[in-house]
Simulated scan of single mutants.
Amino acid sequence: MEGLLVNRATTGRFYIFQCFSRFLSPLSAVPLVALSGFGLYEFGFPVLAKCIEIGLPQIILLLIFSQYIPHMIHGERHVFDRFAVIFSVVIVWIYAHLLTVGGAYKNTGPKTQLSCRTDRAGIIGAAPWIRVPYPFQWGAPSFDAGEAFAMMAASFVALVESTGVFIAVSRYASATPLPPSILSRGIGWQGVGILFSGIFGTGNGSSVSVENAGLLALTRVGSRRVVQISAGFMIFFSILGKFGAVFASIPSPIIAALYCLFFAYVGSAGLGFLQFCNLNSFRTKFILGFSVFMGLSIPQYFNEYTAVNGYGPVHTGARWFNDMINVPFSSEAFVAGLLAMILDVTLHRKDSTTRKDRGMHWWDRFRSFRTDTRSEEFYRLPFNLNKFFPSV
């Protein structure tokens, strides 16, 4: 039921967020986009190191296939960089399975077996062959006003983080900068996704996939057709449980090795916006430094406090109120993006050089959808970007 309520709140902010996004500039986008990727560092090497004999070969092979071999082999067909993930995962997955069946983890601890084994928890054997999800499979929806407000706060955090990833995707797809109208449309469809999440009882809402944004940068394929085919495969594997369980049996260190590149790509997209800002301005330096530092420091405090005490710094009798405060301030991208935008729109606004320092002279032509003819090409037609950008 919370998902149904969150959808109403999210889609209700459809046009409100369009107005909010007009205050974004390349300067305030830097911390937001950068920490949308770099802020997920705990899912990278710390998880990879839980089974270093699997995770390390994975990241090394991924680097070789995606960065080195394409520059050694010059050809018209881009094979290794397009399929670097598939090649590296298959090789290391087979290697991990050989270690599992060979008894390498027979006498190890439970944590090591959970991270390294490909047959952990009998996930393949327990999965059904066919399982069709249906609405309200967990029973009739229930209503709780407090929990609904807590879920709305969580959806707002996902909305802000998704905005950073949207901007990163547009950069890596060689598209024009996102007009506020297009950005709000994506947020609106995210609300529709949360609606279906609530109906089918997924346990979590819909948000932009940061790893898919990094995958776009790695493969340099910005085709909507690819996304549509991938969505078809996801539906297929969600219904045929055995096939989905096979992919779910991939050890988590292999996935963490992929995240090391994917999240790094998304974070570097944020750093790319620095080229449009005046880095000699002390105003620019203060906003960037303060927002990034606080974006890392405040969530670290909230997470450490919660790990030690079992509850967040805001601890009242109303759990929903606690979640409304603790959840947003535990997100690096949310804190950094919010601080950067507030400082950017309030600090020295009357200074004549401020607008150029914050990079707005570059985004001005894209504030309206129809001020650039390329907008029609990128946001209306289902095409492959390689036709327009051979280097992509």
Rank of each mutant, 00 (worst) to 15 (best):
G3N: 12
L5C: 07
L5P: 00
L24H: 01
S25F: 01
V30E: 12
G37I: 07
F38G: 04
P57L: 02
L62G: 02
L63P: 00
I64P: 00
I64T: 12
I64Q: 06
I73K: 04
G75C: 13
H78A: 14
L99F: 01
G103M: 06
A104H: 08
P110D: 11
W129S: 13
P133E: 09
P133C: 07
F136L: 03
A173F: 06
A173P: 08
P179I: 09
Q190H: 05
Q190F: 05
G191E: 03
L195P: 05
F196I: 13
N212D: 14
A213L: 03
S223Q: 03
Q228S: 12
F237V: 15
V246H: 04
S249F: 00
G272L: 09
F276P: 02
S281L: 02
K285T: 15
K285G: 15
G289F: 07
L296R: 02
G310W: 00
H315A: 15
T316Q: 01
N322W: 00
I325H: 03
N326H: 04
V327Y: 13
P328I: 12
S331D: 11
E332Y: 06
L338V: 14
L339C: 13
D344N: 11
L347T: 15
S352A: 13
M360G: 05
S368A: 08
S375F: 03
Y379D: 07
L385H: 12
F388E: 14
S391K: 04
V392E: 06
